[in-house]
Design a protein around this nucleic acid. Structure first.
Length: 242
DNA sequence: AACCAGGACGTGA
DNA sequence: TCACGTCATGGT
């Protein structure tokens, strides 16, 4: 009885991935300003997304840029977070040592546009000290969670997108889509939802990468204004038979 | 004018 | 564990 339900939820997880991928294609996450390789971006130019290129990030500063981005975009639109990153970039501060050489006030003004400037400045400095101490080692999830400012989603985002580790990222959009479609419950916590995905997908980082990015793309279209999901043309009635 | 944005922390049950 | 208030700014 329960087993059948679990199995159907697992099938839905797989089915929704293929539907989203067929609809939107590869998403090219995590966005990077001026990433290494390929063409020429001048200062301020943004190539940002890089579909089907799973080699990024390559450099130490590109990894660092993603870590900065995961904190800057907490409860904030990517548009705002990106502006903050561009401000930091114009200070040459998308580099851990350079960032720590800045005064708090300078950092705060640079990231003001992304909101929560006081706590995000603390968070960024904390993770930067940790990042320098790592010296090219891949951090563990618990190490990340012990840093002030890094919770479940940010830890998984860093592991998945900065370090290519197969850790599924669960965000508010994920909860919204899968709750609306009857695949999770209101009271399912972060790790339970994470397990639903990880136990039904091949543990490949590029699959988790695309799935989370596709969820965000789809949710921005149909799950941002209430009533959430009502106009979703793709997943409507996907839960029939549960 | 209220609501939302690619959340996390501190507190008190 | 878990619900709740708080953190800040920008766009719709």
């Amino acid at each position: 009885m329960f087993y059948l339900l679990v199995q159907k939820k697992g099938e839905a997880v797989k089915l929704i991935f293929s539907k989203l991928y067929n609809e939107y294609g590869p998403q090219g996450w995590w966005p990077l300003i001026n990433y290494s390789g390929l063409n020429t971006a001048k200062t301020g130019a943004i190539k940002e997304y890089h579909p089907l290129n799973y080699d990024l990030p390559k450099t130490r500063d590109e990894i660092y840029e993603i870590i900065l981005g995961t904190i800057l975009t907490q409860n904030t639109s990517w548009t705002s977070a990106k502006k903050a990153l561009l401000n930091l970039n114009s200070l040459n501060a998308i580099n851990p040592e350079k960032l720590l050489s800045l005064k708090d006030k300078t950092i705060k003004e640079a990231i003001r546009c992304a909101g929560f400037l006081n706590q995000k400045t603390k968070y960024i400095k904390a993770v930067t000290h940790f990042y320098i101490s790592l010296e090219d080692i891949i951090p563990t999830r618990n190490e990340l969670l012990n840093i002030n400012g890094i919770g479940n989603e940010t830890a998984d985002s860093i592991l998945l997108y900065a370090y290519k580790q197969p850790e599924f990222v669960v965000d508010t959009y994920t909860k919204r889509i899968f709750l609306y479609n009857g695949i999770i419950n209101e009271n399912d916590n972060y790790n339970r939802i994470k397990y639903l995905f990880e136990s039904n997908l091949d543990p490949e980082f590029y699959i988790y990468n695309e799935y989370h990015a596709l969820i965000v793309e789809h949710a921005k279209r149909y799950y941002s204004t209430k009533p959430y999901g009502e106009k979703d043309p793709l997943l409507q009635n996907i839960n029939i038979g549960f």
